[in-house]
């Protein structure tokens, strides 16, 4: 069994971000972010609201444009490139290809309300991957079973609790067989008693060896699943390290202050 540190030394990162910067108008939300995620690794990004954590995930998936930097996925460069000295957006078709490899789960679930749970899960495999319907339905059923919702396959999102909807959203992303899963504050909109069931599914995924990037405010959970933690504030990575290093022995004052505040809650 290799530790993530070993993997880091020998393999190509699943995601490699170099010098990423992004602004909304004159407000710089990401400043020179660099990090990478190796296969099987669980990277957790923590930090105060407005630090730019979620924006990183949106940029990795190219749901948000960015001005500077490079994002490599499995050794391939995506995003704006320079051609003849001019910056130009990446071709749509290639971004669609990229997004197949990256599953993302949103804070607001964003399930398709006009489709049942199973249809939510099978839509993209059928339409995007052109899978035969029967195969997609069988595999979709397996994904729903994986998140413990086989019984709810024929229910519409409005008939499900928040926690169940979020688990369907996870199954929907998994159905595309992504190389990496991004989780964008997926428990922040949930009632407290529903948080546990979603975190349990994520923990199971991490045990299964899924490569994950997680933005969360659940510190206890971060500590349990993270191979590596990044602490962000005001658009910058302040500090990174293992869960132990960050939680038990933070070096930066801002990290210490943030952790004190979250503990006193």
């Amino acid at each position: 069994m290799f530790s993530p540190a070993d993997v880091r030394a020998i393999s190509q990162p699943t995601i490699k971000i170099c010098g990423l910067s992004k602004s909304y108008g004159s407000i710089e939300v990401l400043k020179d972010i660099s990090l990478d995620v190796v296969p099987g690794e669980v990277v957790v990004i923590i930090g105060p609201s407005g630090a730019g954590k979620s924006t990183i995930l949106s940029c990795v998936n190219h749901l948000e444009p960015y001005e500077k930097g490079e994002i490599w996925v499995e050794g391939q460069l995506y995003g704006p490139t320079r051609a003849r000295g001019r910056r130009r957006a990446h071709a749509e078709a290639e971004l669609n290809q990229l997004r197949r490899k990256i599953g993302i789960v949103f804070q607001a679930y964003n399930l398709f309300p006009h489709l049942t749970a199973l249809e939510n899960v099978t839509l993209a495999p059928i339409r995007v991957l052109k899978k035969p319907r029967a195969d997609a339905v069988r595999e979709g059923g397996e994904q729903l079973a994986r998140v413990g919702l086989s019984q709810k396959a024929d229910k519409y999102p409005a008939e499900l609790s928040g926690g169940q909807q979020q688990r369907v959203a996870i199954a929907r992303a998994l159905a595309m067989q992504p190389k990496v899963m991004l989780f964008d504050e997926v428990t922040s909109a949930l009632d407290p008693e529903l948080v546990g069931e979603v975190l349990a599914v994520m923990k199971q995924l991490s045990n299964d060896g899924m490569t994950m990037m997680i933005v969360t405010h659940e510190m206890q959970f971060a500590r349990e699943v993270a191979d590596r933690i990044y602490f962000m504030d005001e658009g910058k990575i302040v500090e990174s390290g293992t869960a132990q290093e960050i939680f038990d022995n933070p070096k930066q004052e801002r990290t210490q202050a943030f952790l004190r505040r979250t503990r006193s809650l």
Binding site: A93, Q97, R100, G103, N110, L111, F112, V128, A173, M176
Partner: peptide, 12 residues
């Protein structure tokens, strides 16, 4: 969010 979710699944 509906458009974002659909695009995130690789849909044109």
């Amino acid at each position: 969010g509906q458009m974002r979710a659909a695009r995130s699944l690789g849909m044109p």
